[in-house]
Design a protein around this nucleic acid. Structure first.
Lengths: 251, 251
DNA sequence: GTGTTTATCGTCAGGCAGACGACTATGATC
DNA sequence: GATCATAGTCGTCTGCCTGACGATAAACAC
């Protein structure tokens, strides 16, 4: 296959972001309202064009910072935390996915702790955290505004991102990316419960996470911010893979 | 972010293929020799441009057929088998990855049973199955020709594909994609052993795979093609997820 | 104090995996 | 044809992990 410069069609390349967080016991995604056609007024995932001189991950990190102010957690400097986890999710390139032109979108998945408020270029009314079920629901929305379906193929992208997050917290320590730098076992458990939409036994969960070497390191402090007996505070340990994995209950 | 048509740079989009198979107890990948600069004469992964009217998966399937003659296994018609498994792997878009222009490559992973011989546009000397360690080795090649390093960032892509395959056969029935339509438990075990580069206990392996519902369905036939006592023949069952997973031994 | 909430420790039974013995059925070799 | 080598298949045993769940501890609200 010769590299004839006239032999390949030009594409636009974008990054779209599935930004997930846990708010009030429910898994939420960041959605922005489209201000222009197509799909004007509808909700979509944040994203934008990849610039001529930046890598895909750089573009994703830039878009994430523009939409949320989050910096990406630097694996080299885990001390200063509160950054988000960012990874590539998948690429979507159906010829019909954008009615205007041929656009290939490299979707990324970002996980962040609960944030004060979204900001989309300073315009708060055009960005929101919405429960993922609400953004993904097939049928009609409830009263007020209808969130679903998302613009373009963003519903599919969001579903893929949610599924990635749900499965990845099984065998990795990724759930800590939803937590503040210091957190309790109970807070971590509520993350799993929100992401999986299940109830977990607090005693077995405690045994599992504290018994997995390298998963959690105690900071020595305690907190009562959840009420009840004071709980130990932990930071995420160095381990990234959980072996054996956390088992997701049936259904 | 307005969609100003002059605001985005044009990209070339390609698909690159990590095609894996198991030959003579070792995990091999398909490599093609580059006939022109850059990296002329070096080995690379097969791939090509995405056409203006085709989806990414279509482009990958087309390239796979062109390079190997393999058709992609149709999930809707599992009866006629001998197709390959094909899935998207990841997308690589470093601005410097191709010295000629800005190319974003959507890599795909294909798994195939052992094949008669490669064909790259009919020219056999420009395509070969090479053990992945050979293609990935850091140092110098042995006598004869040096395979590594691959052209562009294909070494990284291949490493990612191999890692995906290694981890995915843990929790899915994907290892059967390396087998012919009918296979024995021992043949399936040798696939795991080749992909993981480990030795597995034949008795425990047999208990595991035959005890997992939906993984294997006996065809009733037997074979002695491996020597020794005749072994039952199986086909891949409908189950795609293995629960609990096959455990990969420590190193 | 009493009740409520959350955290944490313990106990027990069942399931599964690793280690490994035993037996079976074929082809190869003497 | 007896013997050997090779693979396949069935069992047993032990230890670890999980799910279910009782019990205790330490805070706050009244």
């Amino acid at each position: 296959m010769p590299y004839d410069p006239s032999a390949f069609p030009p594409f636009a390349v974008t990054v779209d972001l599935v930004v997930l967080t846990v708010r009030r016991h429910s898994l939420c995604a960041l959605a922005v309202r489209r201000g222009e056609p197509p799909f004007q007024g509808r909700w979509a995932l944040p994203g934008g064009f990849v610039r001529a001189d930046e890598d895909l991950s750089q573009a994703a990190a830039r878009e994430l910072a523009e939409e949320t102010g989050l910096r990406v957690h630097d694996p080299a400097a885990p001390a200063q935390d509160n950054g988000a986890h960012l990874e590539q999710l998948a690429t979507y390139g159906d010829p019909e996915r954008d009615p205007r032109m041929r656009v290939v979108s490299v979707a990324h998945l970002a996980l962040a702790p609960d944030l004060p408020a979204p900001r989309a270029g300073g315009d708060a009314s055009n960005a929101r955290w919405a429960p993922v079920e609400e953004l993904l629901e097939e049928g009609l929305g409830r009263d007020g505004e209808q969130a679903a379906p998302l613009a373009f193929d963003h519903g599919r992208i969001l579903a893929d991102g949610v599924e990635r997050a749900r499965s990845k917290i099984e065998y990795s320590s990724l759930a800590t990316a939803f937590c503040p730098p210091e957190f309790t076992v109970g807070e971590l458990r509520r993350v799993y419960e929100a992401v999986w939409s299940v109830a977990l036994d607090p005693r077995n969960f405690h045994r599992k996470v504290t018994g997995t070497p390298g998963f959690l390191v105690p900071t020595g402090g305690t907190t009562t911010r959840q009420g009840g007996r004071p709980a130990q505070l932990f930071r995420a340990g160095g381990a990234t893979l959980l072996n054996p994995p956390m088992l997701r209950p049936e259904v």
